[in-house]
């Protein structure tokens, strides 16, 4: 019901969706987010990127993010898959799937999970371009996106 995975292989949205809903008839809404590798970022013409992570801590942080989402909204389940290793433009990199009885909870929780993942999960991207390789820098907009959810206590009554 609360599934996280860090893997090199591609994922299949349909299979993941079926796994999330398997055996249940109380799911009224499912929201999915898929992140892809772009061919432009800090420099144009990104040819590929390599994703590094902190094995062990990553899985724990992803579980914790799902637990925080489940504490804020009445969710029925969630699946969070993040890929690591070498990826090319057009490749899917991250999947968030959230199910709930009504749509609002699933929409909000999906966005919350991605905002937290961006600032709390130990992944690092190195981009490979024609003009060289570099580690991607943090973005202020990601920090701001996470900050708007406030602390757990403040938003407990949403």
């Amino acid at each position: 019901m609360w599934h996280v995975a860090v893997q090199r292989e591609a994922f299949d949205l349909n299979q993941e969706s079926q796994a999330l809903r398997a055996g249940r008839r109380d799911v009224g809404a499912e929201v999915s987010f898929v992140g892809y590798v772009r061919d432009f970022n800090e420099r144009p013409e990104v040819q590929a990127l390599t994703l590094e992570h902190y094995p062990g801590m990553t899985e724990q942080q992803l579980q914790m993010i799902l637990q925080q989402a489940a504490a804020r909204w009445p969710l029925l389940g969630a699946r969070l898959i993040h890929r690591v290793g070498r990826l090319e433009p057009g490749d899917a990199i991250v999947l968030v799937l959230v199910s709930s009885a009504h749509r609002q909870a699933a929409f909000s929780a999906c966005e919350f999970i991605m905002d937290y993942l961006k600032t709390q999960a130990p992944f690092w991207k190195k981009e490979h371009t024609a003009t060289g390789d570099y580690w991607v820098s943090e973005r202020d907009t990601d920090q701001q996106a996470q900050a708007r959810w406030g602390s757990y206590r403040e938003s407990n009554h949403e």
Partner: peptide
């Protein structure tokens, strides 16, 4: 563990 700010997603 020490590391730079994270950039996943």
């Amino acid at each position: 563990a020490f590391f730079p700010p994270v950039t996943g997603g």
